[in-house]
């Protein structure tokens, strides 16, 4: 049988209509030619700095891009093409998003109602009870309003909202900002459980350290492209197992490694055309980097760099 992952994204590009100074308008490429697949039972972490297009990628899959955005490419979910219509019907059911901030909870609705959603039958009540138990939320927290919850409880409540539906794909957008290590790890463990129960999880974060703790594979985003997708073991095994120069730089910059900054800045989207976007910062740059960059598939990983062997 052919390998058929739950989610397959092929050559996704997203561009925006933007105003420049005054009245001129132009298209800005925010992400270009992203291909990635995620299967049941695994956590794929998307790691990149702000502006690398990682949230946009998630919004593209969910179908919640702003109006002035256009998306190209193909998304296949569970063997079928994910059209706009299908996105709408699956959103919040088979594909769920855990938002970044606990301020996404409705401040005027009791937690129980929010978690339970519009269904009020016995089955959904039972499910609510189950997941409150699973996430260590006491019974009477059903009756509370969001402002009465502690930060950790609110976060668990958000996770249990996703738990209500039998989602196959869960996308978490920076689920642990500003949490201490203990709390962050607890939150991430919930996502590990989701994956272990046979769901596919996409974890979006800027914090490679955290990603290394739970993910199975890491996709490194840079300036709206994927530069490398590697199994998490490669990061644990050391820098020599990482292939792309940007991934290496990221690894070297960690305080437990070299704590070394890297010259230059991530370019803005909008630079369309051939060539490697990292080339201007790269030590290995040569003439060939201005050409189309092939995607090289090595055992279990993918690298977008022509100097990789």
């Amino acid at each position: 049988m052919m390998y058929m992952p739950l989610l397959e994204v092929n050559n996704m590009s997203i561009s925006f209509k933007m105003y420049e100074k005054g009245l001129r308008q132009h298209d800005m490429n925010a992400i270009s030619n992203i291909s990635l697949d995620v299967d049941r039972g695994e956590i794929v972490a998307i790691v990149g700095s702000s502006g690398s297009g990682k949230s946009l990628f998630a919004h593209g899959i969910m179908g919640i891009l702003p109006k002035n955005a256009t998306m190209e490419g193909e998304i296949i979910f569970d063997g079928e093409k994910l059209t706009k219509k299908r996105q709408k019907s699956l959103r919040g059911r088979r594909i769920s998003l855990v938002p970044q901030s606990i301020s996404y909870l409705d401040p005027l609705m009791r937690i129980g109602r929010q978690v339970q959603g519009p269904n009020r039958d016995d089955k959904s009540k039972r499910k609510l009870k189950e997941s409150f138990k699973r996430y260590n939320l006491c019974k009477n927290s059903e009756r509370l309003y969001p402002f009465q919850l502690s930060g950790g409880m609110a976060r668990r409540a958000m996770v249990s909202i996703v738990d209500q539906e039998d989602s196959d794909l869960i996308i978490a957008d920076e689920p642990t900002p500003g949490l201490d290590l203990d709390l962050a790890m607890k939150t991430l463990r919930y996502f590990r459980e989701f994956a272990d129960r046979g769901k596919a999880v996409i974890l979006i974060t800027h914090d490679i350290d955290l990603a290394l703790n739970v993910a199975d594979r890491i996709a490194i985003f840079y300036a709206g492209t994927i530069v490398e997708v590697a199994p998490v073991e490669d990061f644990h095994r050391g820098i020599d197992f990482l292939k792309h120069p940007y991934t290496k730089a990221l690894f070297n910059a960690l305080p437990q490694n070299e704590f070394k900054p890297f010259k230059g800045n991530q370019p803005y989207g909008g630079i369309i055309g051939k060539g490697c976007l990292f080339a201007p910062r790269c030590n290995m740059m040569d003439e060939g980097c201005k050409e189309d960059i092939p995607i090289i598939y090595l055992e279990g990983k993918m690298v977008r760099c022509k100097n990789v062997t």
Binding site: V47, P177, G178, L250, A253, F259, P261
Partner: peptide, 17 residues
């Protein structure tokens, strides 16, 4: 106060250096 919590590792290293 948590000035590099929201930043990627390279930016964090640069700012702190």
């Amino acid at each position: 106060d948590e000035i590099s919590t929201m930043l990627d590792a390279i930016t964090q290293a640069q700012i702190w250096n």
